[in-house]
């Protein structure tokens, strides 16, 4: 049987997601598509963070009755990663909400979603 290094695969997928997100933000012209690309980027970061807490043969960090408290520290997932993912999700939600709100307002003003038309560099 082929042994699969799960952590490695997850890290590579995370790197791929990050770069796809960056590329999407750079190459797609539609503002909504740019926002979707940002969510991909954010998901890649989340995947990297979750993978960081991976422990071989580990358990969820909830103490079930009857399990050994002594073995818990060694076997439970590292707590930083999942904790930070919560924060990243919240930040992602808020940023996306602000982006979508401003996009809505700008769409009502200009009637288009093209970043190259709406977000031209111009002075008043």
């Amino acid at each position: 049987m082929i042994e699969i290094n799960l952590q490695l695969l997850c890290f590579m997928a995370a790197a791929l997601l990050v770069v796809i997100g960056l590329g999407g933000m750079l190459f797609l012209d539609n503002i909504i598509k740019k926002i979707i690309a940002f969510t991909l980027l954010s998901d890649g970061v989340n995947l990297a963070l979750v993978t960081l807490g991976y422990v071989e043969g580990g358990i969820v960090s909830i103490l079930e009755p009857g399990t050994s408290a002594g073995a818990f520290p060694e076997n439970a997932v590292l707590i930083f990663g999942p904790g930070i993912v919560l924060t990243n999700i919240v930040i992602g939600v808020s940023t996306t909400a602000v982006l979508v709100a401003v996009t809505m307002v700008l769409y009502r003003r200009y009637g288009t979603l093209k970043a190259s038309k709406v977000l031209k560099g111009e002075r008043k």
């Binding site: 960056l22 933000m25 750079l26 012209d29 970043a115 190259s116 977000l119 031209k120 560099g121 111009e122």
Partner: peptide, 13 residues
Amino acid sequence: NSSDLNRVLFWVM
């Protein structure tokens, strides 16, 4: 140096 979003994104990359 104009504040065009795509251009600034390009330069940041």
